[in-house]
């Protein structure tokens, strides 16, 4: 079946198989930052932002996303020009193995888009579907706070 999908601001017409999930599709299209961790919406490694909301792409059938807009971490920044969340994650020690990181950053991005100065509890809640076995989360939460502060400061400057 054919669908039209916008990924990272690029509209694409793609042929999808019936049982393919959005996770499968994105990886097939080359968006490898979207990871398979559990396949049942419990680990968050496949988190993408769809129409403004962070979601588990493994829980969505690709055939049902016709007309939707999806953002993956590839759209946020590059090594040369990282997003403030991405640099804050590295500085704070929030990246260890990095497997959960793209999903974690997307969940954090969706939070900060909606709530630029979240409390610690709000950060914990926003990231509660993104499992991480390396860090114990503490430095991830610190990274989101740091990024929030910097993003606000940057906004003030502009």
């Amino acid at each position: 079946m054919e669908i039209i999908l916008t990924v990272n601001k690029q509209s694409r017409k793609v042929e999808v198989r019936p049982a393919e999930t959005l996770l499968d599709l994105l990886r097939r299209l080359g968006y490898k930052s979207v990871k398979y961790g559990c396949g049942e919406g419990a680990c968050g490694a496949c988190t993408v932002i769809m129409d403004g909301r962070p979601v588990n792409s493994c829980l969505i059938l690709a055939v049902t996303v016709d007309g939707r807009e999806v953002t993956t971490v590839e759209d946020l920044g590059t090594i040369q020009k990282p997003h403030l969340l991405q640099s804050a994650f590295v500085e704070s020690g929030a990246v260890q193995c990095g497997f959960c990181t793209p999903g974690m950053i997307m969940a954090a991005k969706a939070l900060l888009d909606r709530n630029p100065s979240p409390s610690e509890d709000e950060i914990k809640e926003a990231l509660d579907g993104n499992l991480c076995r390396c860090t114990g989360y503490v430095q991830i939460i610190e990274a989101v706070r740091l990024a929030a502060r910097r993003m606000k400061a940057e906004k003030k400057k502009n």
């Binding site: 968050g44 988190t47 969940a107 509660d128 579907g129």
Partner: peptide
């Protein structure tokens, strides 16, 4: 209910 990610779906 579930996690933030789940609640969006």
């Amino acid at each position: 209910i579930g996690s933030t990610l789940n609640r969006n779906l």
